[in-house]
Amino acid sequence: MRGVIRALAVPVWRTLPWRTLGAAGAVGLLIPGLPRLSGAEPAGWVTLLLLRAAALVLGLGLAFLLDDPARPGTTPVPTGRAVRTALRVALVAPLAAVWWTAVLLLVPGAHRPPTGDVTLEAGAACALALALAGLTVRHSEDPHPGRPAATALLAAALFAPLLLPDDWPLFVPAGDPRWETAHDHWAWLLAAAGTIWLLTLHEPLRRPFRRRSPRPRRSG
């Protein structure tokens, strides 16, 4: 297995959507970085909002991680989807961790919310993005699952505060009495999204039905 992973590492690295990931990384760094460049010291609630926006941008970028224009040609290869997908995540995960550390360091320490809890929120957003992309890959043959996955993630982020019941809070300000309860919910969301993503790694038993075009009749 190690030999297979080593042989796949370079080809998979080359097929990763680096332009999309790089654009998401740049935008995500600008969100908390611009106030610091201007010399402004945002309030605590603004800082939390900026970090959540950066985490959402990271999730939107990772939603495109499974985009692979060569997917129709890689479907019949001996190496299963689980190995190829896990390798994609493994190659990007260290870079994402370094990027998130840089985002946290861009926020002034005096106004920085609890880093562990905010990192939990970012992890849940990333896991949800991967789960949505994995579901799209499993239930369609679209080689670009990033668009529907990113759209669904953005819709969830926008409408979740409006649709969730009051006794199941997620987006609460730092210092709110419901902070710990909210992050228990974030932990459940992370576990659920991670489980769904793992389940999407298996190859489907049946391929989506394709209507075959009728063969032209031979004349004469």
Rank of each mutant, 00 (worst) to 15 (best):
L37Y: 01
A110T: 07
L21Y: 04
L135A: 15
D67V: 05
A155H: 06
L189N: 00
L51C: 00
R207C: 02
L128I: 09
P114D: 11
T136C: 13
A174W: 11
C126N: 08
V172N: 11
W188C: 02
H185K: 05
V137M: 11
T47S: 14
L51A: 00
A125C: 12
R206K: 03
F159R: 08
T15D: 15
T115C: 09
G28D: 10
P165W: 06
R206N: 06
P216H: 15
T151R: 10
P108Y: 10
R88E: 00
T85S: 13
P169H: 06
L37E: 02
L201W: 00
T74L: 13
A152W: 01
R36Y: 06
L48N: 04
L104K: 03
L104M: 07
G123W: 14
F209C: 04
R36K: 14
W45K: 07
H111D: 04
R14L: 14
G25R: 01
L205A: 13
P11V: 15
A96D: 06
L48D: 02
R71T: 08
A9W: 10
L87I: 01
R206C: 02
A82F: 06
G146C: 05
A55L: 03
P113V: 11
I5Q: 11
A191I: 03
T15N: 12
D67G: 04
L190S: 06
L87H: 04
L60E: 05
L37F: 02
A192F: 07
A102T: 06
A193F: 02
L132S: 14
W45I: 12
L48R: 00
L29R: 00
V89P: 12
L29P: 00
G3C: 08
E180W: 05
I31N: 01
G220Q: 08
A155G: 09
A97N: 02
L158P: 04
H139L: 10
L132Y: 14
A24M: 00
L66P: 08
L163P: 08
V137P: 07
G194C: 05
L56W: 02
L58V: 13
A55K: 12
H144P: 07
H185Y: 07
L91C: 04
L154A: 15
G80Q: 09
W188E: 02
T20A: 15
L201G: 04
A155L: 14
S140G: 09
A70V: 13
A193G: 11
A82Q: 03
P177W: 11
